[in-house]
């Protein structure tokens, strides 16, 4: 079953045709990796899935994106969509507040008042993000005191706290060292049991390690997509071949 279906999607930043006629299915509870050279539109595509591109001036989008069968661009409630589609950014962006408050932010923003409920969700989310044991004694200290990898896992916990169905990750490990990266990859292996994950990555090894499906983009076009094995071992298109073999990109 497909969680997200993208049909004939075109996106323009002003004159810049950043996404060209993209059609792609994102399967439920699988990890889908988006790969391709810099500037090919991976982040842009990711940001159409939770309508973060709405924040950019002069964006024009045609085509449609269905989420559980519902066209997200026809639906006016962007906030409800973003609650169901969480996002983790390339550079960890904890808020300037305590660890606890970071995870509780989304809940409070939804108007959840019960301290008990918030506490429970915060613990649960931190556990799911494999961060609980490291921070349980200092929930009230500043989030900036965490290491880079911990900060990124905090951001994942913050997204999980909203109980989303989909988590979008834009190069979540590109700013991290190998050990922190490994931790997050392990975490994703757990997360895929509950969530649908779409991840942008520049590391082909990472895609090979964690992704069930892989989609390769090239200058705004979706060149090829399929099982990760197939993309890396038997690519059909020569551009894909070139990219995954490391000839360019």
């Amino acid at each position: 079953m497909n969680k997200l279906t993208i049909n004939n999607l075109d996106l323009f930043y002003g004159e810049n045709h950043a996404l060209k006629d993209i059609s792609l299915n994102i399967p439920n509870r699988k990890v889908t990796a988006l790969i391709g050279p810099s500037g090919c539109g991976k982040s842009t595509l990711l940001r159409t899935l939770n309508r973060m591109n709405d924040l950019v001036e002069n964006v024009k989008i045609t085509g449609d994106v269905h989420f559980d069968g519902e066209d997200i661009y026809q639906q006016s409630d962007v906030k409800a969509l973003r609650k169901r589609v969480g996002m983790v950014f390339q550079k960890a962006n904890p808020f300037p507040m305590s660890i606890f408050e970071n995870v509780a932010f989304g809940l409070k923003a939804q108007g959840v008042k019960s301290t008990e409920e918030i506490k429970a969700v915060v613990e649960e989310s931190l556990r799911s993000a494999a961060l609980w044991d490291e921070v349980k004694d200092r929930l009230d200290s500043d989030a900036f005191g965490l290491s880079g990898g911990q900060q990124q896992r905090l951001c994942i916990a913050r997204a999980i706290a909203m109980e989303p169905e989909v988590i979008l990750m834009d190069e979540p490990t590109s700013a991290l060292d190998p050990i922190a990266t490994h931790k997050i990859e392990e975490l994703m292996d757990e997360l895929r049991k509950k969530f649908t994950i779409v991840i942008v990555t520049h590391s082909m090894n990472q895609a090979k390690r964690i992704a069930d499906k892989t989609a390769f983009f090239w200058m705004g076009e979706l060149v090829e997509h399929g099982e990760t094995d197939q993309i890396f071992n038997n690519p059909i298109d020569t551009r894909t071949q070139g990219y995954v073999s490391g000839e360019f990109g």
Partner: peptide, 12 residues
Amino acid sequence: SYREGGYALGAT
């Protein structure tokens, strides 16, 4: 990134 983070959580 604070604004993006806030909006991405569905906050108004």
